[in-house]
Nucleic acid binder design. Structure first.
Length: 560
RNA sequence: GCCCCCGUAGCUCAGUGGAUAGAGCAUCGGACUUCUAAUCCGCAGGUCGCAGGUUCGAAUCCUGCCGGGGGCGCCA
């Protein structure tokens, strides 16, 4: 019996009690999803619910009396061994050993599908993350969003949502001009211009641009005028940088469905259309030679310029058009992941959302993640794009590998700052929890191989009543939590919950393993149902570990 | 000045109103003649930053302080 099935049984019992008048409660007050949780202490049974405490007041009853009604009926549900009322009104439920053990078969048979659901089916979500400027390699901050964003996308999809991963490519505006000027200067052997970019990658790209141009038989940009030469470096440089970013992200197991070019919004007239729309809605005015959006009407601290007095579109104009474009493409929700240094955008973005007639935090959601700091020799590392002292996605992956990098960035709440200690990471092996989880998976595979060698085959028998050891019921219960953890991680946009869960699951598995309760026969023992049944549990654990690691984009090794 | 995030074991952090607040690392003491010791068992470690409030119940919600980080452009 899975916790989801128990939850459903509880709801049925509750509904029945309300229907026959045993509980004076409005049927509408019965929750669609009765929460079933693992009690903190093992002595309190397999599962617990606080539903009686939550609903007692609405029914005008004492929580314990409310619980009594449910307990009596719940005890008759097949698979439920006992029900106890504890404390202020908890219902503590213990399952039949066999009913609990059935879960092992459920999981193995579901395979990669175990943990997937349909709770978010029908939601069309546009998830935008990374969106780093194509003026340099992806630095450490962007890597965090790559890991967290992609994992979140996987979890949303596991819950049935229709997700598009999107990268907003800022190929318009003065940053790009500076990038192009920096390339040109470098190619001419000059110093980087004021506010420009430095670093080895600028030299590499400048060289690559020259190679490309020469190979294509185009005129040498060094013989062209400043404007023409800069345009050559801009066009080729951006393309090269972009190709590099895409490739690095791909190696990091992050592939976007859409790379959206900011420039296209300006080229296509989408920006003008967005401004016109807002003007028609009456939220735009002219002042000081510029065009403003009255965002204060929707809670922003000040109105925002959308068209500058020099006639150029302000950066936010692109955002207006971009948001509108996403909505016109049919997304119910546009989720944008931003760094803490952009938190000030929330007010104006939500105001913009309202100005279009949409609902903030429903149609538009902004997730703010805190910074990643680097520490070396106990000192914070100052990064500068201009000086080229940045730590890139590549540097991190070279140091610790994709698995450890993704895992260590995704296992913390995005609300917490992360200090990555380079000295630790470069030598880190045991200190990284990813190995603990991966090792548990490798162990399940090893056990399965050994069992196969000794002729233990799952299909020859399964007797869940034999999974009666405390380490087995603990492991089963942990396995049963997986679905809810994934859904919670997706709904709360907190993928780190899956990583934390996997660490707990791995711990429960390692403990079971070390109970010396052999999956394979000892010595000259014959193969029996106990071995086969334990193999089901072993394989079920391996399945959940693999499914969970996949949601984090981390490999599940067969052996380590 | 205003806004956002954080403050929990020596360190790094989990814990979106529930029961005796948890894990990893580090320290200390144990466990491999049979499936992987990258593991497990045990000991120790806490005024959940401080003070109020809300209620059956607060690490969690509200208010105010203190400390750390980030942000408040006709830059992008």
């Amino acid at each position: 019996m899975t916790p989801a099935e128990l939850s459903e049984a509880l709801r049925a019992v509750l509904t029945a009690a309300v229907a026959d008048g045993s509980l004076p409660l409005d049927p509408a007050a019965v929750p669609a999803d009765v929460v079933v949780e693992r009690p903190r202490s093992r002595e309190h049974g397999d599962w617990a619910t606080n539903v009686a405490m939550q609903l007692a007041k609405k029914a005008g009853m004492a929580p314990r009396a409310f619980a009594e009604v449910l307990a009596a009926r719940l005890a008759d549900v097949p698979g439920v061994a006992s029900v106890a009322i504890a404390g202020p009104g908890f219902l503590n439920i213990t399952l039949d050993v066999a009913a609990a053990g059935e879960l092992a078969r459920t999981v193995v048979e579901a395979g990669a599908g175990f943990g997937r659901g349909t709770a978010l089916a029908g939601e069309r979500i546009n998830l935008e993350f990374v969106s780093a400027n194509p003026t340099g390699p992806i630095h450490i901050g962007g890597v965090r969003w790559a890991a967290v964003g992609d994992s979140l996308a996987r979890m949303l999809q596991a819950c049935g949502a229709d997700v598009v991963r999107e990268y907003y490519f800022n190929d318009h505006g003065s940053q790009i001009d500076r990038f192009a000027r920096s390339l040109l200067a470098r190619a001419r052997g000059q110093e980087a211009p004021e506010g420009g970019y430095g670093g080895q990658y600028i030299a590499d790209i400048a060289d690559s641009v020259l190679e490309r141009v020469r190979a294509a038989g185009e005129p040498d940009p060094l013989t062209l005028s400043d404007d023409e030469a800069q345009e050559v470096f801009r066009a080729h440089g951006v393309e090269l940088m972009f190709g590099e970013i895409k490739a690095k992200l791909h190696d990091f197991r992050v592939d976007f469905d859409v790379y959206f070019h900011e420039d296209s919004l300006h080229e296509s007239g989408a920006v003008e259309r967005a401004v016109t729309r807002l003007r028609e809605l009456g939220h735009v005015y002219e002042a000081d030679g510029a065009t403003w959006l009255r965002t204060t009407e929707f809670g922003d601290d000040k109105d925002r310029v959308i068209l500058k007095s020099d006639g150029q579109a302000a950066y936010i104009a692109g955002d207006l058009a971009y948001y509108l474009d996403k909505r016109e493409r049919g997304f119910d929700r546009a989720i944008i992941m931003l760094g803490a240094d952009h938190h000030g955008y929330i007010g104006r973005m939500m105001a913009m959302c309202s100005a279009f007639g949409d609902t903030p935090w429903v149609n538009l959601e902004i997730l703010i993640g805190q910074m990643v700091n680097l520490v070396k020799d106990g000192e914070p590392v100052r990064m500068s794009k201009r000086a080229g002292t940045i730590v890139t996605l590549d540097d991190l992956v070279d140091a610790v590998g994709v698995d450890a990098a993704r895992y260590s960035l995704a296992r913390s709440s995005a609300d917490s700052m992360i200090d990555l200690d380079l000295d630790l990471l470069t030598r880190a092996t045991n200190e990284n929890p990813v190995f603990y989880v991966q090792y548990a998976h490798a162990r399940t595979r090893n056990v399965a191989r050994n069992a196969a060698d000794l002729g233990v085959r799952r299909e020859d028998g399964f007797d869940p009543s034999l999974l009666d050891h405390v380490s087995e019921s603990t492991l089963l219960a942990k396995i049963g939590e997986f679905g809810r953890v994934v859904l919670q991680a997706a709904e709360l946009r907190e993928p780190h919950r899956v990583a934390r869960y996997l660490e707990e699951l791995a711990g429960a598995y390692h403990k079971w393993y070390d109970q010396k309760r052999f999956v394979i026969p000892k010595g000259d023992e014959d193969v029996a149902d106990v071995h086969r049944t334990r193999l089901w549990l072993n394989d079920a654990t391996g399945t959940v570990l693999a499914n969970g690691l996949d949601l984090l984009g981390v490999s599940a090794p067969e052996r380590m």
